[in-house]
Structure formats: C-alpha cells, structure tokens
Computed example of a mutant assay.
Amino acid sequence: MTDGDLIVQDVRANYQERFGGNGVGFVPITSESAASRGSVKSTYSKNWKTQSYLNVKRPTSPFGVNGHVFFANDKSNPTWVQYEAGLNKYSTSLDNATLFYGRAAKTGKVNFIIGKDTIKKSLSPNNLVNTLKVSSGSLKAFKANFVQADSIPIYGFNFDNGSGVYVDNFSQRGNSGLPISMFNADVMRAFNNSLKYDLVILHYGTNVLNYGTKNYSWYERGMTKTVNKIKESFPGVSILIVSTADKSTKYDLEMKTDSAVVPLMKAQKHYALETHAGFVNLYTLMGGDGSMIKWVDETPAKANKDYTHFNQRGAKAIGNLLYGQLNKGYEEYKVLRQKRDAEGTKPKPVKRARPDSISVTKDSV
C-alpha cells in the first residue's frame, strides 16, 4: 500500500507543513519502488548484493532498520548509488546526508561525487552501526562510489535538516509484517541512537488476505511477537497499528467486500489491544463495507481495478484521513494536558482508548 512512498509522503507532508522539517528520512540503497518514487529519486548500479528479511533467515550481517543489508560487489565493476532531491514540497533538497553502515573486519572507502567535486572518505566499520556524513548542508544530488568495501554491510542514507518531523517509509512488497520479529534488537537500538524514533506505524494485511482463511489467530500471535520485538528494539517508542483497508472480491458475478477483511481487521484490533498499541481502523475510516468498490468507481477513481490498491489520488486521500485521525487525538490530548496543568493536580489514570480511536501521549509526534 505504501510502495513508491504512497500514503506515507502525504502523512509526512502534512506533519512538515505544521511542525517543520525538510526531507524524506531514511532511504535504502536499492528498492523495488525506486523508479516510481517521486519524493526522492535514486538510481544504482546493478551489482549490489541485497539480502532481505523476506527471503533470508541468516544474513551475512544483521539487517538494517529497513529489513535489508547491502554489499558492494566492487571487485570487477564500480558499485554506486545516486540520489536526487524530489519534487514534493518538503523534499526539494537532500539535507544533512548521512550514510549508515555496519560492522566488518576490513575497512573500505567511498567517494562522494557532488557536482564537479569528488570527496574521498574512509569507512571505519568498528561499531554495530556506523555513520558518515556526506555533507552538513543541503544538496540537490550526489553519487556515492564504494571502493574496496565489499565486506562492509551498507544500510542506506538518511536525509533531514535536524528539526521538525520526519516519517521514514520502509515499504516492502509481499510483507505480512511477521519477519520483523527476526530483527536484531541491539542493531535496532544502535539505529535508534541516531534516528531517535518517537512512533512506529505498522500497516499490513493486504498480503495475508489471500491465504484462504478467516481464522487469523495465528497472525494475531505472530504480530504480537512482532510488536513486542519492536518494543524491545526501540525502548519507549509508541506503536500504532493501521488495519487492512477494504478489498473487494467477485462473488456470484458481483463485487463485494472480501469475506476475510473483517476477520483480519478484528485480529489486528486484538493484537493492538494486547500490546497496548494505538489502532486506526482503516476499513471503517474509508467507508466500511463495499467502500473499495466506491473508491474504484468514483470519477476520477481513487483505487485500481484490482479492487485492492489505491492509486496516487486515493493514497493522498488515505494519507489525509490518517493524519486527520492522529491530529484529532493530539488536539484532544493538548486540551486534557492544559486542564491538568491548570488544576495543578496529578493526572488521573487514563482509561484504555477504544480500539477504533487514537490516543497521542507524547509532545513530539
């Protein structure tokens, strides 16, 4: 659903419009959706070796925060990646570009090509997660050539100007969310020391709707394990579960909401409650039963003819709906806090929020 930065780029833009910030956050070295992503443009050589948490159980080096680890296969041909600022309102420059890489026995080098200049820097892979600044300022584009670095795990680059709100997008086609439980918590904590996450949003479901079942107890158990691994990996972080959207399937020549949608949504609500996470019921937010049919049939359409995925117009609408829910909770929280401060009393215990609502419990979002 978030492939090509869909939905996420609109949530990000709404937050940066209100609270400041410029940049798209963390971006991997290679990506299936790089060509279709407009918020940042990236191209790369074909000789990168990629290991993904979707198909590798024992990676050569631990997976990065986005579930991947990359190796520069630079023995015969140059291995490179190039980034260019996107066209979105708050991503027109690459600010404070920083490379993230892992631990290795051998050192390496990377040459950053910025315009006509070449800046040569060394890679010192001493820690679980290491960082290297390309530039402290703003860039429109740069290219990174890796030299004698084939043994060093490379994770990606982060772009932000140090203030405001940032929303990373770790989209992955075919992902149920369950593989996150394989993450190395020590490595994630090392990433968090630099990236300092406040909120982790999990939006899965599309890829488990086709399993031919309406009993999602197995998924509920697995995702409870996933959420608990995130809590271990990012201490103190808030977690938000966004349910599956509506999906339509043909029954007796008529398109109807797939019979697995509601059982899956209820399972997602259960593991959100079980793990004390926030929950957004995207199925009801977009209109509930039969809503995907309406989104496809609208003029202009907001979803594709597969009755599963949103197009760019629909993704923007979903992003705005999600931001609206989060912002509503934030505004309600501020009123409660002001009332508490005015009374000068300790806050009373807060009742658990209804599972179809959101409570925001931090000053920073």
Rank of each mutant, 00 (worst) to 15 (best):
T2V: 11
D3R: 03
I7V: 15
R12S: 09
Y15K: 04
E17F: 06
G20C: 12
G23A: 10
P28S: 14
I29H: 00
S31I: 01
E32S: 14
A34S: 15
R37L: 05
G38F: 00
G38W: 00
T43M: 07
S45E: 07
S45Y: 05
K46T: 10
N47P: 02
N47M: 06
K49M: 04
Y53T: 01
Y53R: 11
R58N: 13
P59W: 04
P59E: 08
T60I: 07
T60Y: 03
S61K: 15
N66M: 12
A72M: 08
S76G: 06
W80P: 10
E84H: 04
E84Q: 15
L87A: 11
L87W: 04
L87G: 07
N88Y: 09
Y90D: 07
S91T: 15
S91R: 04
T92V: 09
S93G: 11
L99A: 10
R103F: 02
A104F: 02
A105K: 15
K109Q: 14
V110A: 12
G115P: 09
G115M: 10
T118Y: 01
K120M: 14
P125Y: 10
V129Y: 12
L139G: 12
K140F: 10
A144I: 05
A144S: 03
S151L: 02
P153K: 08
N161G: 08
S171K: 00
G177R: 03
L178A: 11
P179C: 05
A185D: 14
A190M: 03
N192K: 11
N193P: 00
S194R: 08
L195G: 02
Y197Q: 07
D198L: 02
V200Y: 08
T206D: 08
T206S: 15
N207G: 08
G212M: 00
Y216V: 07
G222F: 08
N228Y: 03
I230D: 08
I230R: 13
I230W: 00
G236Y: 11
G236M: 14
V237F: 06
L240W: 11
K247L: 11
M255V: 01
A260R: 14
V261E: 04
L264I: 02
K266E: 13
A267Q: 07
A267T: 06
Q268I: 12
K269Q: 15
E274W: 02
A277Y: 01
G278V: 05
T284G: 01
M286D: 02
G287Q: 09
G288R: 09
G290S: 13
M292F: 13
M292V: 00
W295I: 01
D297K: 12
A301M: 07
K302C: 04
K302M: 14
A303D: 10
N304D: 12
K305M: 13
R313V: 00
G314C: 06
A315I: 00
A317Q: 09
A317S: 10
N320H: 02
G324A: 06
G324D: 04
Q325P: 00
N327P: 00
N327L: 08
G329H: 03
Y330W: 04
E331C: 03
K339T: 12
T345P: 01
K346Y: 09
K348D: 13
K348C: 02
P349K: 15
K351F: 07
K351R: 11
D356E: 13
K362C: 08
S364K: 13
S364G: 03
